[in-house]
Design a binder for these strands. Structure first.
Length: 517
RNA sequence: GGCCCGUUCGUCUAGCGGUUAGGACACCGCCCUUUCACGGCGGCAGCACGGGUUCGAGUCCCGUACGGGUCACCA
């Protein structure tokens, strides 16, 4: 089994594309076959290399390796369509010679008028081939009129095209509703359909697994393949990935619309928080949950993304949702791919990420979190001891690796007080400031300042003052962390250490005084 | 508009003629708790509609509605 993914170099990797690529990759790995990456750059005049880089980076991040393609080569290269011109020219020549294609000299304007007319009469547009050149003299005559020729397919005008599909069974369309599609431009350069069919054959692709939006393209590809005498690959058309909260196809261009959707907006701002604090160079063009880059930048686990994407339009049995990578490879089947589009749910993806991350070994989490802590300036050198303590204490509060920025107060003294919490816990209770002041002295004199020592000291203080723990602990938290919530108070004190705790309580008391005044 | 595809809780889905229509995420409530999370328990909520076929239809057939894809000298 040989499958392929054929992106055009656009400069980014879309999660819908990843889902398609994933199914292809899964099939190849499961069967012991090959997964080919081919670059569809027939239309590209720009810097292909630069536009390709983010795509390759994305696949590498996701751990989806390709057996043949850019960087790795292979026996059927080159894997860039822009470098395969000869093969296309040969194919076009054969189609022309065999009468399956013809030179056409209709002007774009004339074609547009014909299409307009068909639209008005409510019928399918079928080109009547009135500018078809069947001989060399015909071509010269048209060219003398200043017309430019393109090569068109001479499609069947009767009968049916039966498209076998591994996901949908059989799809049948009338040939008569198909157009004489252009396969070569006026300058002779090939168009997508021609190139795609020629390459799939040359690269011995056995299974063409792609999004359902290609379904209407399939008859003309079948026509080309048959005309060229190629055996047909097996086709499988996947439902496309739909936008969050909607049914339309997920598109990078409609991000503005998605940001009005609650869960998408939440994920996006979650990402921005991390990016801001880590000083990541992000562009609004690529930093958003439609693109893989976003997840890589904020510390998602690649396997989680793949696991979630696999479940978009596929299920094992309706109850099991979590799969290790090797299980994905083992269990995936085209037979269980759904027919209806599946909408992308950012909240569910985050939920997958959160509890998968929480199951990782502490060391592993520390390793993942470290680059973010460094980028955010929370650690100078490799102070893994305190990082380890924070990661352990934070537990499942870290959903993605970048969430370490939420605990910046464990590392550095510059933090903001949460205004609401400050007012409620420090300013409002009458005795809060006085209690903090006294507690500070006790902490200064505490025998030990590990978790147990901090706890004993604070609790001893409460006993002595005959107050409940709840009457002081909230103010203490705000004073030492600025936050209304966080992990265990005594863990927090121990991690901060005596000096910082005392200093922060003093600073808090001062702020309270100046706020009062 | 032509051609094609689709339709089970808000979302992802299970279901392949007989089920109190199951699970997950989200949401709501309760419990746990020094806070925030986690966790536990519970709740809300679905077969688009109309005809057939059948003893019996979420499951099969037809139609309607709605949604979507596609109609380039883009891929």
């Amino acid at each position: 089994m040989r499958t392929r993914f054929a992106p055009s170099p656009t400069g980014y990797l879309h999660i819908g594309g990843v889902r398609t690529a994933l199914f292809n990759w899964l099939l190849a790995r499961q069967s012991g076959g090959q997964f080919v990456l081919r670059i569809d750059d027939t239309d590209s005049h720009r810097n292909v290399e630069a536009a390709l880089q983010p795509i390759l980076d994305g696949f590498r991040f996701l751990g989806m390796d390709w057996d043949e393609g850019p960087d790795v080569g292979g026996p059927h290269g080159p894997y860039f369509q822009s470098q395969r011109g000869e093969q296309y020219a040969d194919a076009i020549e054969r189609l022309l010679n065999d009468g399956h294609a013809y030179w056409d000299y209709a002007r774009p304007k004339e074609l547009a008028a014909m299409r307009e007319e068909a639209k008005h009469s409510g019928t399918a547009f079928v080109y009547d081939r009135r500018y078809a050149a069947d001989s060399q003299p015909d071509r010269e005559r048209f060219e003398k009129e200043g017309r430019q020729g393109v090569v068109r397919l001479r499609m069947h005008r009767e009968g049916q095209c039966v498209m076998p599909d591994l996901v949908r069974g059989e799809v049948i369309v009338e040939w008569a509703s198909e157009q004489d599609h252009v396969i070569a431009r006026a300058d002779g350069s090939p168009l997508y359909h021609l190139a795609s069919v020629v390459d799939d054959h040359a690269m011995q692709i056995t299974h063409v697994v792609r999004a359902a939006e290609h379904l209407p393209n399939t008859p003309r590809q079948i026509f080309i393949a048959e005309a060229l005498g190629y055996p047909l690959p097996k086709y499988a058309h996947l439902p496309y990935v739909a936008e969050p909260g909607g049914t339309a196809k997920l598109s990078k261009r409609k991000i503005d619309k998605y940001t009005k959707q609650r869960d998408f907006a939440k994920l996006l701002s979650h990402g921005h928080k991390i990016a801001d604090r880590c000083g990541l160079a992000i562009s609004s063009e690529t930093f958003n949950p439609v693109l893989v880059d976003f997840y890589q930048k904020i510390g998602f686990l690649p396997d989680v993304l793949l696991n979630y994407l696999m479940l978009l339009g596929w299920s094992l049995d309706g109850s099991r949702e979590r799969f290790q990578r090797d299980e994905m490879v083992k269990l995936f089947t085209l037979e269980r791919v759904n027919l209806a589009p599946a909408s992308f749910d950012p909240a569910k993806l985050l939920a997958f990420q959160a509890d998968t991350f929480a199951t990782l070994e502490l060391d592993h989490r520390v390793e993942l979190v470290r680059p973010f802590a460094m980028a955010a300036g929370l650690m100078q050198g490799d102070d893994d001891a305190s990082l380890g303590a924070v990661v352990e204490a934070a537990g499942d509060r870290l959903k993605v690796a970048g969430d370490i920025v939420d605990f910046d107060y464990c590392f550095v003294d510059e933090f903001e007080y949460d205004a609401k919490a400050f007012k409620k816990r420090v300013l409002t209770p009458e005795d809060a400031v006085l209690l903090l002041s006294e507690l500070s002295q006790h902490l200064e004199a505490a025998e030990s300042f590990d978790i147990g020592g901090a706890e004993a000291t604070v609790k001893g203080f409460c006993e002595k003052k005959e107050i409940q723990l709840g009457q002081i602990i909230h103010a203490l938290r705000v004073a030492t962390t600025g936050q209304p919530g966080g992990f265990g108070m005594f863990e927090t004190l121990a991690i901060l250490g005596r000096d910082r705790v005392v200093r922060r309580i003093q600073a808090c008391i001062q702020k309270a005084a100046s706020d009062e005044a």
